[in-house]
Amino acid sequence: MLVLPEFRLTHDNLTYDDLLRIVELIKSSEQFSEFRLKIGEIEIELRRRKGAGAPWIVAPTEAAAAALLSTTPAADSKSSDLMPAHDPTARVAPTWAPESIVIRAPMVGTFYRAPEPGAPPFVKIGQVVEPDTIVCIIEVMKLMNSIRAAARGVVAQVLADDGATVETSAPLIVLDPEPTP
């Protein structure tokens, strides 16, 4: 997280040199693709050109600025104060056994575990699914796409959060192969 420990930032004492330091810090950090700061009437917005890693979703300006200004110094901390739900680095990479079957997103969209809000999920951990069992929905451009297991197995893990945006071929659900009776 960006901090300028010696300063109490106000619009009175923010100098041109401070601004350069902020820009340098942003440039040298891999953690930021976008930065906004608002102090009194001064508003700074910095954006890294494309190619700086994962796509980021940024909190609205006021919230972001508030988060920045209220955070305690911690030079090595992740940017999770800004975007806890979306930080791609915050989640431990999922793992599964080599014999597992991974159901992947056939398209980019929004992942839903249940047919409607409040309804029980399509599948639960430990449940046996058949190839034609619907395991989740991916909503793309207002179209609900039912995703089928395409294989027989036991649901071992659900990797995507309900309502999360998933990219094409992102792992969604892990099935353990069921021993044939």
């Binding site: 047919p115 409607e116 809000p117 207002k142 609900m144």
Partner: peptide, 15 residues
């Protein structure tokens, strides 16, 4: 009915 209601809820917030 379930399909229509779900889609209506998603699109209009009213099922």
């Amino acid at each position: 009915f379930t399909d229509a209601a779900r889609e209506a809820q998603a699109a209009f917030g009213n099922g």
